[in-house]
């Protein structure tokens, strides 16, 4: 895989938000700048499924939106298939919007409630200038991909008339209808019940395989990411902590934060051991990020250097990178 040219290359990506000044609320030690994403490097190869995991506020959703050029970065660079996203002209941006698609988190909000499902599916095709006589075949093909049963019967219905699972399949079909090569799915199943969730996850896996899609899945759920992604990127307070093959990251987590994260995931096995979490109390606060390593104030293995220097990337195995001073060779 190493010789394949990456589809997406991200260097030093940053997105800072200015906090709106509320004269009545002032929190001690808090800064006016929220560093949502703060220096992320990421290489996504063609056909790869990458999971972005981390807790609320770690910057995973912001990173996903930056990757799709939906918001402008404060710093850094995203190169998509050799083209810098920030310097694309209007025609190129339009082309990019066809090739890269977002799958929304909440299927109940993702579609216009006043559109029939059919109209929601036609819209992207019409916007992209796909000739009208191709619409039906393209829609049917996308619906087949997502295994929507009784599709013909459902297409005249409105979003509130179908179940959450059916709706999420439509949302997925809508993202696939333009035959994209890159999709970003932000918590694609978090709103769904377990029994329905499994079906959507299988559709995601299949679609990725059959279409050779490159996909970024954003999720707080490590078990889900393990199911659909070959690679896992763990984020904490706007930075990447660990990045590597999913099996390595889950089975042999190296970064102290990843260790805590993996240990915290409950499994449906009643025999699982109750081990103490290797993490100090506290919680991530994006308005008061510690100097040096952002995780150091909760890290059980932190030492003096962690406050002084942002840890560099250390490759501990092929393709497995850890941002932690402990791994300095």
């Amino acid at each position: 895989m190493a010789d394949v040219k990456p589809l997406v290359e991200v260097r030093g990506l940053a997105k800072h938000y200015e906090r709106r000044g509320n004269p009545f609320v002032r929190r001690r030690g808090a800064s006016d700048v929220v560093r949502a994403v703060d220096g992320v490097d990421l290489t996504i190869r063609r056909g790869e499924g990458v999971g972005l995991v981390g807790e609320s506020g770690c910057g995973k959703t912001t990173t996903g939106r930056l990757l799709l050029n939906l918001i402008e970065p404060t710093g850094g660079q995203i190169v998509y298939d050799g083209e810098d996203l920030s310097t694309m002209n209007t025609t190129q941006v339009k082309e990019f919007r066809k090739r890269a698609q977002l799958v929304f988190q909440n299927p109940f909000d993702a579609l216009n409630p006043r559109f029939t499902l059919y109209r929601s599916l036609v819209e992207p095709l019409a916007n992209a200038g796909v000739p009208e006589d191709e619409h039906e075949t393209r829609i049917l093909r996308a619906l087949e991909r997502v295994h929507l049963r009784d599709a013909e019967r459902l297409l005249d219905k409105f979003p509130h008339q179908v179940s959450g699972g059916q709706l999420q399949r439509i949302v997925l079909a809508r993202a696939l209808v333009l035959d994209p090569e890159f999709i970003v799915a932000d918590e694609p199943v978090s709103m769904l019940d377990v029994s329905v969730r499994a079906g959507i996850l299988n559709v995601l896996r299949e679609a990725k395989q059959d279409l050779g899609l490159t996909a970024v899945y954003i999720s707080h759920d490590l078990a889900l990411v393990r199911y659909v992604c070959e690679r896992t990127v763990v984020m904490y307070l706007g930075r990447v902590m660990e990045d590597g093959p999913t099996e390595d990251v889950v089975e042999r987590p190296a970064h102290p934060y990843t260790k805590a994260l993996v240990a915290a995931v409950p499994t449906p096995d009643p025999q699982q051991e109750h081990v103490a979490l290797p993490i100090l109390p506290g919680r991530p606060d994006a308005t008061a990020v510690p100097s040096g390593c952002p995780f150091r104030d909760r890290c059980p293995e932190a030492h003096a250097r962690c406050a002084e220097e942002v840890p560099a990337a250390h490759e501990i195995a092929p393709g497995h990178v850890v941002h932690c001073h402990l791994f300095e060779s």
């Binding site: 179940s163 029994s195 329905v196 299988n202 393990r226 449906p268 699982q272």
Partner: peptide
């Protein structure tokens, strides 16, 4: 049984999830 088989388990990676069809 369906609930158990549909649930992603971090400890058991290779298992294919089994959805419960319908609603």
């Amino acid at each position: 049984m369906g609930l158990m088989n549909a649930f992603p388990d971090l400890g058991r990676a290779s298992r294919t999830l089994v959805p419960i069809e319908g609603a």
